[in-house]
Design a protein around this nucleic acid. Structure first.
Lengths: 339, 339
DNA sequence: GTTGAGCCATAGCTTCAAGCTATCAGACTA
DNA sequence: TAGTCTGATAGCTTGAAGCTATGGCTCAAC
């Protein structure tokens, strides 16, 4: 007995064939000769004792079991890459490409501070930025197109871990001559009966602001939905209504001499938590913790109502299953077939 | 450049060292010489560029990164085992050891039919049985001590997939001379004001029966909690009260001449669904589907109120992530990359 | 302080698995 | 029917990974 186990080279060969459906091209992409690849696949089939690939000279197909094994083989090879990646990031912390997605109600207020600071303190880190709404970011995160997402927590996305960065209060923006202008310690109920200008559908901050409206008994002025906070704030300046913005946006959006004023709420003020999200399987948790620290260090602390939070040790983020495989193959309605 | 990737042998070596904290014994357990193992670990550290193991002649410790890499290496090797297992079960369906856990309110009524039938029709399958309550079974399932659990659905356990087998109505058991004896089409509300005998804490059927009590306005006779359905039914025979049992238990527990009678409820009667649970990563989904078919085939169909259900194709059980690596890169369909 | 035991690392040899080139055999096309 | 494309096979070559032998270190016992 003592069946030999599949080799990594064999798994790579199989995955290559699955990707290209062509032995010659698969061999080229793996930088081996075609006979080598051919015999690797054959050897894998021999050690597993089952046929994985149906070959004719005209086409290459995978058997159903073959498909399933390809899926698992991808998992194995990916996990191996992760090990290498983990070592790299342990060796050279916070270096290399970091594909970071940021939601639109955070990006314009955080990035102008973060980017120069990071370039100065961590020149080896190269941020690849992408701005999109939460659902798109989480999608890309899970699919592997992003390494990290900077968004509002919590999201309760399976397979995604979160690292809190800061809380920011919601601040009321009014025209300068509004009765509430400059107020502080407002009860949320003071919004009762007001009409608020909100963001378009899809922005998570819209949903958060709507929650406040519901609690306060305010309504949305739904004929005027803004594509960005900037737009909305300009509408406020134009006297079209009031709005809420997250505290970190105040410095940029509500400057002097624009005919705008703010008002803050009584504690506990409505607020949201902003943080980083990443795959639980990510090999770079240590990096993400470092980056989180960098981000916290660049927060506009002069801005009241922005409160750094967290810094739970990286080890707190743990998955409990090795995962990988799973899944049935196909076509198993087969009745009890007797021998 | 072109860093070599870790080898499977290197990963096995590292895991062995982590397990034994001793190079010599680890080498023995892997059936290689100590120098071989030593150089394998050294080679792994060289390719990863980081120290994984702290050796003195007196003790062997893992560095923190080493611990994490061991964890991932275990995942890789486990996934590889799963691939082999998948092949075995594709080659020889439903053979080998099957570690099956069963809840106490199902085991005595299903197993006496299942075991002989399975021995006759699938002599190659060896069931290793364990009887325990749901929470213990799920625990062992996730930990890998069980392959399968037969219990009430749904459980909503992350990482655990479920395969429905049958629904069974709850049946009222009364003394033979009780006014409700022999009744059928009872509304659940007919239990209003009655006192029911129930199982001890921890049995899922206790919770299910309590739900019925709540709906019907009945109470539990909490001074008398039974350790098993048999005990409770005997208490009913002794005139101590009424109880509910799942339909599959009726044939065994409520025979002729024991001074007992049953009454059934009006449709939709209170019922529960029984099914199989297994890790989503299980390599033997095809086997579990076959076994499910075997179980359905041995159901007491003569018993009214037991209804086979399901047989959703195994392909219905799918996770949407490759997991493990999930990694950004990992065999993403790179187009034929030429030099 | 010396010596022996236990442990991991190193050196050097050996071997076989995995790679390569060259070629074959089948299938479709022109 | 000849040509072209495909994957499989044959036979050679090589280096990675295994082994034995040995070295060097640390600790404990006397």
């Amino acid at each position: 007995m003592a069946q030999p186990q599949p080799t990594l080279a064999q798994l790579r060969a199989l995955v290559g064939v699955a990707d290209h459906r062509h032995f010659g091209r698969a061999a080229a992409s793996l930088h081996v000769s075609q006979p080598t690849l051919s015999s690797a696949v054959a050897a894998l089939e021999r050690t597993l004792g089952i046929q994985l690939v149906e070959r004719t000279t005209r086409s290459v197909l995978l058997t159903p079991v073959g498909e399933e094994i390809v899926r698992r083989a991808r998992g194995v090879l990916g996990a191996l890459d992760d090990i290498t990646q983990l070592a790299v990031s342990a060796r050279e912390p916070l270096t290399g490409d970091i594909r970071l997605g940021v939601i639109p109600t955070v990006a314009p207020y955080l990035l102008p501070r973060l980017l120069p600071s990071l370039r100065a303190r961590r020149p080896e880190a190269r941020l690849r930025l992408r701005e999109a709404q939460t659902h798109a970011l989480l999608e890309e995160l899970r699919g592997g197109a992003l390494d990290l997402a900077l968004l509002a927590l919590p999201n309760d996305e399976p397979g995604v871990a979160e690292l809190p960065l800061y809380d920011e209060d919601f601040v009321l923006v009014t025209p300068a001559d509004h009765p509430m202008a400059g107020g502080s310690g407002l009860p949320v109920g003071a919004l009762g009966g007001q009409e608020l200008l909100l963001l378009e559908d899809g922005h998570c901050f819209r949903a958060q602001a709507l929650d406040v409206c519901r609690e306060a008994g305010a309504r949305e002025r739904s004929a005027l939905r803004g594509a960005s906070l900037s737009t909305i704030v300009q509408m406020v300046a134009g006297g079209l209504g009031l709005t809420l913005v997250p505290a970190a946006a105040v410095g940029v959006e509500v400057g002097e001499g624009r005919g705008l004023a703010t008002a803050t709420f009584r504690d506990p003020a409505p607020r949201r938590r902003i943080g980083l999200a990443f795959r639980t399987t990510s090999a770079r948790v240590a990096d993400w913790n470092l980056l989180a620290a960098e981000i916290r260090a660049t927060l506009p602390v002069t801005e009241l109502r922005v409160t750094p939070v967290g810094d739970p040790p990286a080890t707190a983020i743990r998955r409990d299953l090795p995962a990988v495989g799973a899944g049935g193959q196909a076509g198993s309605g087969e009745p009890p077939d007797e021998a």
